[in-house]
Design a protein around this nucleic acid. Structure first.
Length: 594
DNA sequence: GCCGTTTTCGGCCCGACTGTTTTCAGTCG
């Protein structure tokens, strides 16, 4: 059982308790535990194996013992007894937007949806045949809403990679700014927090005339369909099929709106709990002072905030960068003024993961761009250095001797290029190689090859599904070779395609720290690997990071900012990322025997 | 059922929107 499945199970228990009208706080406890598991990047089963379930927020003695039973026996007797009281078809219906536990129960019961596997299809059919509106408590409009919800469910299953969401948002923002009524526009939600995957694009506009701004928004020519248009908000579907929401607010209150809809939900819940202890009640409109010297008979007064900075300051906190708002300790840190000074894109002085088109008959994709274009681009970006990290020559097609001579050939071609450019070349080039880690942890090239490289990057490109202990030993063995300085895209995940490997990262961090090996934050938006929460843990363990775009063509070197976004989500400061060092300093770290 | 800078007992986030049950429950972010 993976995290998503465990989270779903806990969510189903919460929903079942809701239908059965259990204690509301017990319901919330299960639903919070479920969300916490869903947001975990560590494998929860691994946490259980190591006796660390207590570290998961929201998991106390009762839920821990249920999870213990789940991992030992594959099921939880108590949960099954609870579920038995309800139709099994109820649970898939919870995924339809607009359908919660109570409605799902009524629908499943009245429509006789008693199996999980075809529940959504049966609901859809019932809606199309007008069966839903006949149920007490539902009408024609709820029936229509459910059918729209089912469509949205099918569409929502593929979230957007960050750049797709960012580019769509920028198009709409550019259009919105054409209206003189729009005083300010900002991105909201997971997009503003620069999360690796984004659901809908949410935007906020500051205006004194919300109706005019909403009208302008719905007139955007690229909408396929306008879903809703109110006095202060609107929602539309873009021709790409992606949903865009707009919220408006007066400039005087814009700070509170921005804060509220930037989230994350977990951050906001934690912030409200913290604020309540001070007698403040937060909302998207501002802060109500519910305790202390409010005037009698007047009720709580609402305080307005133009900016987020003022909003956080009023709560006794410093402004928290959106990337950090995931309830990972940022409120505590903001209280003590102990927030890190996050690194920024202009501090990046080089790209440590680039593939060229020098043909050494590689095991994986050859780059598309010649070294000359790569260096030109690097100089344009103001880089002091780049690392050429082509894949190793394929092992099956070459003898060891041939591999060595291919690497020598590549070195000569790089050296010749550098000579030809002479003193005018501002960017220095590291000769490296991205070497495959074999299933047993050995490297896929003869050790002799390492002598011809400035440093080595190693990466996993196969056998992603080994069990944790094996995968951990595999990585440790790979990291023990001389000259290995960077572990490339450490988890091997591909967003929306496959999960990363299961591995005891704590052990890997120890090895990296001891041997001065750097963990890559791969900036390719399909990878963004290490993931943000592991970045945070790595930094806490004293491990330093290496940024690389994994570019196979020069255009992709521009994707560095997405890697920087993720390091910021992992609380990285300038000192945590070796790319912030100048050439002389980083050469000392990477080239061990120079 | 969880949790701790007023608490190991007694609390537990806030408001908008929607549709239908004509006064509010359910759902969402």
């Amino acid at each position: 059982m993976n995290n998503r499945e465990v989270a779903e199970l806990l969510g189903n228990v919460a929903a079942a308790y809701e239908v059965l009208e259990e204690n509301p706080f017990k319901i919330r406890a299960y639903s919070q535990a479920g969300e916490a598991v869903a947001n975990l990047s560590e494998d929860i089963r691994g946490d259980w194996e190591e006796g660390k379930l207590d570290d998961v927020p929201g998991v106390g003695p009762a839920i821990r013992s249920h999870l213990d039973e789940l991992f030992r026996t594959g099921k939880v007797k108590h949960f099954e007894e609870v579920f038995k009281k309800l139709p099994a078809g109820l649970f898939p219906l919870l995924n339809v937007p607009g359908v919660g536990p109570k409605s799902a129960f009524k629908l499943a019961k009245q429509l006789g949806i008693d199996k999980e596997h075809n529940a959504i299809a049966r609901l859809k059919k019932a809606g199309e045949q007008g069966e839903i509106e006949k149920i007490e408590g539902f009408g024609k409009e709820s029936q229509e809403k459910i059918l729209v919800g089912i469509e949205e469910l099918l569409r929502r299953e593929n979230k957007m990679l960050l750049p797709e969401a960012a580019e769509l948002a920028e198009r709409v923002i550019e259009y919105l700014k054409k209206s003189p009524q729009v005083l300010r526009v900002e991105m909201l939600g997971s997009l503003r927090r620069r999360a690796s995957l984004v659901g809908d694009v949410d935007l906020a506009a500051a205006t004194k005339n919300p109706e005019a701004v909403v009208r302008h928004f719905v007139d955007f020519p690229e909408w396929k369909q306008v879903l809703a248009e109110g006095g202060i908000t609107a929602r539309a579907i873009h021709r790409s099929g992606r949903q865009v929401d707009l919220k408006t607010e007066s400039p005087e209150r814009f700070g509170a709106l921005l804060q509220h809809f930037t989230g994350s939900k977990a951050h906001n819940v934690a912030l409200r709990e913290y604020s309540l202890t001070k007698g403040f009640s937060l909302s998207e409109h501002g802060i109500k002072i519910s305790k202390g010297p409010t005037l009698p008979r007047q009720g709580p007064t609402l305080k307005n905030f133009k900016t987020e900075e003022e909003f956080y300051k009023f709560l006794g906190l410093v402004w928290i960068p959106p990337e950090m708002r995931e309830d990972r300790g940022e409120i505590e840190a903001g209280k003590l003024n102990g927030l890190p000074k996050l690194m920024e894109l202009p501090q990046v002085k080089g790209d440590l993961h680039i593939h060229s088109n020098i043909d050494i008959e590689t095991s994986h994709d050859l780059g598309a761009s010649p070294l000359s274009e790569i260096v030109n681009q690097a100089e344009k970006m103001g880089y002091e250095y780049i690392a050429i990290t082509d894949h190793n020559p394929s092992v099956s097609k070459h003898s060891e001797k041939q591999i060595v001579s291919l690497i020598k050939m590549r070195n000569e071609s790089i050296d010749e290029f550098i000579r030809s450019r002479g003193m005018s070349m501002k960017t220095r080039v590291f000769k490296s190689l991205e070497i495959d880690i074999l299933p047993d942890g050995r490297l896929s090239v003869p050790e002799e090859v390492l002598d011809f490289l400035d440093f080595v990057m190693v990466s996993i490109h196969s056998s992603f599904r080994e069990i944790r202990a094996d995968q951990t030993q595999r990585l440790i063995r790979a990291l023990s070779y001389p000259k290995v300085k960077i572990l490339g895209h450490p988890t091997g995940r591909k967003l929306l395609e496959r999960d990363g490997i299961d591995c005891d990262w704590g052990e890997i961090f120890v090895v990296c720290k001891k041997r001065n090996i750097y963990l890559e934050v791969n900036a390719n938006p399909r990878r963004l690997d290490l993931p943000d929460d592991l970045i945070k843990q790595a930094i806490e363990a004293g491990v330093k990071l290496s940024l690389g775009t994994d570019s196979h063509q020069v255009e992709n070197m521009e994707l560095m900012r997405y890697g920087v976004d993720q390091t910021r989500r992992g609380w990285a400061e300038r000192k945590d990322v070796i790319n912030c060092l100048g050439y002389n300093e980083i050469a000392k770290l990477l080239i061990v025997n120079c």
